[in-house]
Structures are given as C-alpha cells and as structure tokens.
Amino acid sequence: MQSSTATAGTAGVPYRPQVAAHFASLEVQNHAARLGMWLFLATEILLFAGLFVIYANYRFLFPEAFALASRELNLNMGTFNTLLLITSSFTAAMAVHYAKEAKNKQVVLMFVLTILMALGFLVVKYFEYSHKFHEHQLPGPYYAFPGLTLPGASAYFTIYFLSTGLHAFHVIIGMIVLGWVTLKAMRNEFSHYNYTAVELGSMYWHLVDLVWIFLFPMLYLI
C-alpha cells in the first residue's frame, strides 16, 4: 500500500507524488482533486449569484437612486483594480505553465507577482472604503450622505459593501492559498507529474478575478 505523501527526488529533482490507497492511479487522483475544486467553485458562484439576484431586485425597485449612487464610486480606482486582477490572473496561469515544465523558480516569481497585485488591490480598496466612511456613504441605517437622499441609496451601498467585502475576503483567502503553494514551489516540488496544487490554486484565483469582472460593471458602470 502506497503512502499519500510525496517522495523526494535526488539531486534537486522535484518531488514525485505517491498515489493514495483509494485511487487507482495518479491520473485518477489528480482528476478527483480537480473535480472537487470545480464543485467547490460552483458553490462559490452560487454564493455570489445570490448577491447578484438581490442587486437586480433592488436595481429594479430603485433605478434612479442606484444610477446616482454608482456615480459616487471612484471609477479610476475601480478600473485600476480591474487591470490588477486581470494581470494577476495571467501570472497565475503562467505559474501553471511553468509548473508543468518543472521551472519552480518561475512558479515562485509568478505567484509572488500575483500576491503583490492582490495586495495592491486591497490597498486601493482600503482607500475606497476610507472615502466612503468619511462621506457617510455606509450601509443600511448608517447611511448619512447628504448629497443623495433618494430612497434606495442606502440599499445600494449596503450591496456595495456586502459584495465587495465578500470579494475582498476571497482575495485574502486566495493570497493565503497562493502563498502556501509558493512555499511548496520554493522546495522544488512541482513538475509535469506533480502540478495539481498549482493548478487548483490558480483555478481559485481565476474565480476571484471572474467575480470582480461581474462586480465592476454592476457597481461602477450602471
């Protein structure tokens, strides 16, 4: 019976993963990991889909308030964050490419760049949030912005903070996951037969990017 732990190679050769006892082969084991990730990502999409439905409902009820409230967001910051995430999605994809070729140093570089761009995204979001707090453009009963008093304005900022806050939480989780995979790459663990962790981490990061692609036009461009 084989162990589920990886076996270290010699002379700097990347680790070779072992097949767990309940899998017929390494290919089946990797396929099961990918299927599990796809199922997990599906539940994450359902989570955000609920927010999109709530947004659509209130947008229908308060169209004027939502249109005016969206103009209170900083389009330049939102666009910059969009560019950051799109670029970080590219570097995450390149990490998978390099992992397949056992180029672990390049995997480390690509994921470090991805994490730095994620950190930049959070810094920009911090300044956005700070401005909203200063202007009292807050969710629900805490809304006290004198420049927009139409009914529904507080609902818009409730959805804004809820959806972008949940997304920022996923960004932080993604940074932790990619950081863990980066540590494995620094130990020279990845190669053409062992890159599943890189692939799954990249898949999660693509979800973070995809969700923002929907949030950006929904909140900033309406």
Results as ranks from 00 to 15, higher is better:
R34A: 15
N30L: 07
V198I: 12
I115C: 08
G140A: 15
F40R: 11
I173V: 09
L119C: 02
E199P: 05
V198R: 04
A6G: 09
L162R: 07
A153K: 01
F190S: 01
K105C: 09
Y98A: 05
P146D: 05
H97A: 11
L26M: 14
A69I: 04
T5C: 09
N57T: 08
L116I: 14
W212N: 01
P217I: 02
I86S: 15
N76L: 13
L183F: 12
V96W: 09
T5P: 01
M94L: 15
F48G: 01
Q29I: 06
S3Q: 12
T79C: 03
L200Y: 06
A56T: 02
P146A: 04
L138P: 01
I172M: 08
H134D: 13
F127M: 10
I173Y: 05
F157R: 01
Y160Q: 11
V107A: 06
N30Y: 11
V13M: 15
L150C: 10
H22M: 09
N74L: 03
N188S: 04
A56V: 03
G36M: 00
F214L: 15
Y160H: 06
F190D: 06
A65Q: 09
W180R: 14
L210I: 02
F60L: 02
A92F: 03
H192A: 13
H136R: 05
I172N: 06
A65S: 04
W180M: 14
T164M: 09
A32W: 00
W180K: 14
S154N: 15
L200M: 15
A92R: 00
A153C: 09
L200F: 14
Y98M: 00
L215G: 01
P217C: 00
H167V: 05
A144E: 03
A11V: 00
I115S: 06
A185G: 11
H170T: 11
G12A: 07
I173F: 04
L148G: 04
N188I: 01
P141K: 10
G78K: 08
F161R: 08
A69V: 02
H170L: 04
N81T: 08
E128Y: 06
P17S: 08
L210N: 01
L210H: 00
F127A: 07
R187I: 03
A144C: 07
H22A: 10
P146R: 03
L183P: 04
M77S: 12
E27N: 07
G201E: 10
E101R: 14
G78A: 08
V19N: 03
V177C: 01
S25T: 13
H136N: 14
E72D: 10
L162S: 12
F90D: 02
W38A: 15
R187F: 06
N30P: 02
